[in-house]
Amino acid sequence: MQPSSSPAQTPPRANLAGWLYVLPLVLVLVPFFVAPILVVLAASFFATDGFGGLTPGFTLASYVEVLHSALTLKLYLATIKFTVLTWIFTLIIGFFVAYFLVFHVRNQLLAIGLFLLCTVPFWTSNIIRMISWIPLLGKEGLINQALLAMGVIRQPLEVLLFSDLAVVIAYVHQLTIFMIVPIFNSMARIDKKLIEAAIDAGASRFDIMRLIVVPMSKSGIALGTIFVVSIVMGDFFVVKVMSGGGSASVVSAFYEDVGVLQYPTAAASAVLLTLVLVAIVSLILRTVDIRQEITR
């Protein structure tokens, strides 16, 4: 957080000012982020009597249990499946919506207006937006009724609701905005002259997309990816409701652990998930130097 200049070269006053700048962030992060994480970390090494009692100490038993369980692998596979599917669809939709707004809408005011329009559904709660899919997708829902009435199907399609499909639909609906915003932002900063120059030099639309737009939107894509991946991996409610309880996720499993007062294993699973997410995010950051791209 501290600027990289060494204290020896910086006058003490500037140094103090630097600390003052970060102070508000520190005041928020330490009690509300660092401390709870440390508590969870500590709890993950404690022993339990199985009835909510924790014995301070150091044991790796919870980690051994979590890591040795085939369930952990299945839960991660299920969660990663939802993450990847959601990521692909939000990326495709988000990218093209942003592309349209930036390159096809000539009037900047109109572009910003349309951009704001994209956020309208997000004025209402996540839960409402998710639940509103249920009457649409159900056995006696609008889609099934319409298809039945048209004679396309004889039996209602059950795969529409309480299925992986329903989970992905809800996630994509909820999270596409997190792709649109950063991608729109990075695309908007692409100099239009560059594209004109490319056209003049005989580049095809596809070349422009491949060689200019995509590489220069990388930071936005990376940021959007971080949002989407971390939200999906940290969520359990959408999976629970839209799969009709037919699927589970990493978080839902350790939430159930807390319900039966198995704090250490829940804590160990939480620490593991944090590590996995940190690894994924650093992998993304390694591929795209967001800081450099943003200050470009």
Binding site: G50, S69, L71, K74, L75, A78, G245, G246, S247, A248, S252, A253, E256, D257, G259, V260, L261, Q262, T265
Partner: peptide, 14 residues
């Protein structure tokens, strides 16, 4: 309970 919970999650994720 801890074991049962784990097996129940096996059912959920199956």
């Amino acid at each position: 309970a801890a074991y049962m919970n784990k097996r129940w999650n096996d059912f959920k994720v199956a």
